[in-house]
């Protein structure tokens, strides 16, 4: 018989001696992002190792702003993400409600098509999407092009279908007996009761849109309608670019999401794992 407390102590030490260094390693790129953002380009490209933030954040921001008017691209990104999230939540929760609440002709088919085609890579649709929006409609560099095509995302449909089907049917039946219309049942009962789910879904969708890279890269190459990640990426290949400035851009892209992540971690985790359980 070994002593229980000794075993525990040994296990705890082993656990932390693995996890702590690994965690520090994982934090390093994030930390370096902030450090780089505060260093002058000369300091970044110098032979010394810098691990402590410096003081050049303002200067770097000014250079970035001079290079690509980053604030404007951030505004585009925010507007796109907010509108996209709103519409995606609205459309997909309505669809999820229909699939969870009603037995209707073709329900199985709709679910099968959505589930089946979602396993196909995005590449299969991006070319026709591009031809349709850019060439046929001539809508490159518009809000429509940035916001509407990505609304196909069915994550919310599956997510909200799950949420609604877990609610007790009696609630909706009670309202039905009271003569409340189906639309009002949806608005006044189903939606308010799924607030945590809606929050989780909104966070995930906002993040999707905020970080979306390929579609905005294809469809929005005009300076006035560029999203922030695309604008930042466009600097990488240039010779005469301020890397301190680029890192300021990276920080500005990342910090809002980190704040959301820290304060709404519960919803965030729910959003990620809900995709896994289906």
């Amino acid at each position: 018989m070994r002593s229980k407390s000794k075993t525990m102590l040994f296990r705890s030490l082993a656990l932390h001696s693995v996890l702590v260094p690994l965690a520090l390693l994982w934090l390093l790129p994030l930390w370096m992002m902030f450090v780089f953002a505060t260093m002058s380009d000369n300091a970044i490209f110098s032979p010394d190792i810098h691990l402590i933030p410096s003081t050049q954040f303002g200067e770097n921001f000014a250079k970035l702003q001079g290079d690509i008017d980053f604030v404007r691209t951030l505004i585009v990104s925010v507007v796109v993400a907010v509108i996209y999230t709103f519409f995606s939540v609205a459309l997909t929760s309505m669809a999820g409600w229909a699939l969870a609440r009603y037995k209707f002709l073709g329900r199985g088919l709709v679910v099968a098509i959505i589930l089946g085609t979602m396993t196909l890579p995005y590449f299969v649709v991006v070319i026709p999407q591009f031809i349709m929006v850019a060439r046929d409609f001539g809508l490159s560099n518009t809000w429509f092009a940035l916001i509407v095509p990505p609304l196909f995302n069915s994550l919310g449909v599956l997510f909200m279908r799950q949420a609604f089907s877990l609610m007790p049917v009696d609630l909706f039946d009670a309202a039905r007996v009271e003569g409340v219309s189906e639309w009002k049942i949806f608005i006044h009962i189903a939606l308010p009761l799924s607030r945590p789910m809606l929050a989780a879904l909104s966070i995930i969708l906002f993040l999707h849109s905020w970080n979306n890279y390929l579609w905005p890269l294809l469809i929005s190459n005009d300076r006035s309608m560029m999203t922030a990640p695309v604008a930042l990426g466009s600097l990488f290949g240039l010779i005469d670019v301020s890397w301190g400035g680029v890192m300021v851009g990276a920080v500005l892209l990342t910090v809002p999401m980190l704040v959301v992540f820290v304060f709404l971690q519960r919803f965030f985790m729910a959003g990620i794992t809900a995709g896994a359980v289906k």
Binding site: A23, L24, W26, L27, L28, P29, L30, M32, M33, F36, I44, L207, W210, N211, Y213, A228, P229, V230, L232, G233, F236, W243, V246, M247, G249, A250, V251, L253, T254, M257, L258, V260, F261, V262, Q265, F268, I272
Partner: peptide
């Protein structure tokens, strides 16, 4: 936080850091 934070970071942002690191 250390392991989960990268999940929220966009490709452009982390690509930039990795290039420099």
């Amino acid at each position: 936080f250390a392991f989960f934070a990268p999940v929220v970071i966009g490709e452009a942002a982390y690509a930039a850091v990795f290039r420099l690191m």
